[in-house]
């Protein structure tokens, strides 16, 4: 707000993609620059001051829920934790819906496929015990647990999925997030779904589609490395094919 300082507001140019499943176009807005401002702040400013019909999605605003990701100047970003200062180029922002996902309206994408692929990758825990058994003791220092711990902080934001060119080239590819999650379970000693998960991740749309170019790891806001996880899966599927233990 201008009242906080005596300086006149510095405006920036913001192009926002507007449209729906059948296409759309960029629309230009002006928004004032503020200190510590995030991309989500800019989108909210436009929605509250310029065009209340602008559709976008967010929930937590603190990088927990994974619902606010968009393309910002051509790169996928979690908008609630991306500072304008970090990405502003020539005083301009270009904000578009996340790549590789169908658009519902404006900046909101339909993430159904993304989550369906988690299911397809069998990226969910298969229990081997019941609630009546004692809690499983887990040693945090074993190589398996260390590998799993490296990869567990995913917030399902689909930034990696939007960055991935293999997803862009093959709509059946399960993508970095689902495979990264599958890898954490491969390393979970409590999990009982190993064999069918190996089948799921080595099927047609599975880990062998990955070209290891690392766009996913480059942009994951939680600094996870799906490229490394997928390489782990590739090794595991080769071992499984050779009849070796995981």
């Amino acid at each position: 707000m201008a009242a906080e300082t005596d300086k006149p507001e510095k405006m920036m140019d913001v192009s926002v993609w507007r449209g729906g499943p059948d296409g759309g176009a960029f629309e230009s807005f002006k928004a004032p620059q503020q200190e510590s401002q995030t991309i989500l702040d800019v989108v909210t400013y436009i929605q509250q001051n310029e065009d209340p019909s602008l559709a976008y999605r967010f929930a937590c605003r603190v990088g927990m829920c994974g619902s606010c990701a968009m393309m910002v100047n051509g790169q996928p970003r979690w908008t609630c934790r991306t500072h304008v200062q970090k990405v502003l180029k020539d005083n301009k922002l270009v904000i578009a819906p996340l790549r590789n996902l169908p658009v519902i309206r404006d900046l909101a994408t339909d993430m159904t496929v993304f989550f369906d692929k988690w299911t397809a990758a069998e990226a969910s825990f298969t229990p081997t015990k019941t609630r009546h058994d004692p809690m499983a003791p887990i040693n945090p220092e074993t190589p398996e647990r260390l590998a799993a711990s490296e990869a567990i902080e995913c917030i399902n934001c689909a930034v990696c999925y939007a960055a991935c060119d293999a997803v862009a080239g093959n709509e059946d590819y399960l993508g970095p997030a689902a495979l990264n999650r599958a890898w954490t379970l491969v390393n979970d000693v409590r999990d009982g779904g190993h064999e069918s998960r190996m089948d799921a991740v080595s099927a047609a749309g599975g880990c062998h589609n990955c070209h290891s170019m690392g766009n996913c790891a480059q942009f994951c806001p939680n600094e996870l490395n799906p490229t490394a996880s997928i390489a782990g899966l590739k090794r595991a599927t080769v071992k499984a094919a050779l009849g070796l233990r995981k």
């Binding site: 051509g74 790169q75 996928p76 939007a162 960055a163 060119d165 170019m213 690392g214 766009n215």
Partner: peptide, 14 residues
């Protein structure tokens, strides 16, 4: 080159 590709490992891929 699209901005989401401008990093060393993508160039290695290319």
């Amino acid at each position: 080159i699209s901005p989401h590709r401008s990093h060393p490992l993508w160039f290695a891929f290319l």
